[in-house]
């Protein structure tokens, strides 16, 4: 099944990807951001914040945004 994955971590990424059917959000997060902690991210599905056990469906729009990002002066 295909979902639109928008990753606002790192360099920023938005694309349609294939995932296994009926995947919960927690598993999706662990696959895509294996070194991240879910509590440090705002996870939205179809623009709504969701719980970790929410099941993803075909065509869902999954957005992961860090809640803390380090700013820095451009040298």
């Amino acid at each position: 099944m295909r979902v639109l994955f928008i990753n606002n971590d790192g360099a920023g990424f938005a694309d349609h990807i294939e995932i296994e059917p009926n995947m919960p959000v927690a598993k999706f997060f662990a696959q895509k951001l294996p070194h991240g902690r879910p509590e440090d991210y705002l996870i939205r599905v179809n623009r709504q914040p969701v719980s970790r056990d929410q099941i993803l469906h075909e065509g869902d729009r999954v957005t992961i945004t860090p809640t803390k990002i380090e700013g820095a002066i451009v040298s």
Binding site: I6, N7, N8, D9, G10, A11, G12, F13, A14, L42, R47, T63, T65, P66, T67, K68, I69, E70, G71, A72, I73, V74
Partner: peptide, 28 residues
């Protein structure tokens, strides 16, 4: 000064994902 947010913010703005852009700026 965006630092680590530079890439994701630019990507969000180019794709007119304004909600993400605001969230990224607020995270900084």
């Amino acid at each position: 000064c965006l630092g680590d947010a530079t890439g994701p913010l630019q990507a969000a703005l180019r794709q007119c994902r304004f909600a993400d852009a605001f969230q990224i700026a607020a995270a900084v």
